[in-house]
């Protein structure tokens, strides 16, 4: 699944704000942290506000605050606000009968999409923030050279 920029920005913003629900941040502050366009992010934050995931705090010192339930809200819940998730195969143009190879390939790609969807539905914002704090990718990077060496030795 390739995410659009707006979806990616929404995930950054929601996770950043959910990490500390008492804190309010402006679009500029979040955009600077992630090196993204504050103009584009402001639009995304308005969409997140309409969906009830963030509250806009007006006036001097205003900004946005997380307004959802981080234990219940999943990555897929955020993605679905910006992407037509799961509709790729339905939208595909009808194919003439007999295109078995094309059908077969779509069948295999649908398997991958189903796996991706299940993964995104299973990770709540709270779980994602715990994962970020744990940084499992550093351990994976450390064991990768050892695994490669073991494979070469076989």
């Amino acid at each position: 699944m390739k995410l659009q920029k707006a979806t990616e920005f929404a995930l950054y913003a929601v996770l950043e704000l959910a990490a500390d629900p008492s804190r309010q941040l402006t679009a500029v502050e979040i955009a600077e942290k992630y090196g993204i366009s504050s103009h584009h992010l402001a639009k995304v934050l308005r969409d997140l506000g309409r969906a009830g995931l963030v509250d806009a705090v007006r006036g001097v010192g205003g900004g946005y605050r997380f307004a959802g339930n981080a234990k219940r809200l999943t990555l897929m819940d955020v993605i679905r606000l910006f992407e037509d998730a799961g509709s790729e195969s339905e939208d595909a143009a009808p194919r003439p009968p007999g295109e078995d190879i094309a059908e077969g390939l779509r069948f295999v790609l649908a398997e991958i999409d189903a796996q991706t969807g299940a993964t995104l539905c299973s990770i709540s914002l709270s779980t994602m923030l715990k994962l970020v704090a744990r940084r499992p990718w550093t351990a994976a990077a450390e064991t990768r050279p050892a695994r490669r060496a073991a494979r070469r030795a076989r």
């Binding site: 999943t74 189903a114 796996q115 299940a118 539905c121 299973s122 990770i123 709540s124 709270s126 779980t127 715990k130 994962l131 744990r134 499992p136």
Partner: peptide, 15 residues
């Protein structure tokens, strides 16, 4: 099960 979001999310929340 892929569609058992409750159990899947539970195991994910455990890390």
């Amino acid at each position: 099960a892929r569609d058992n979001t409750v159990i899947h999310s539970f195991f994910r929340s455990q890390g």
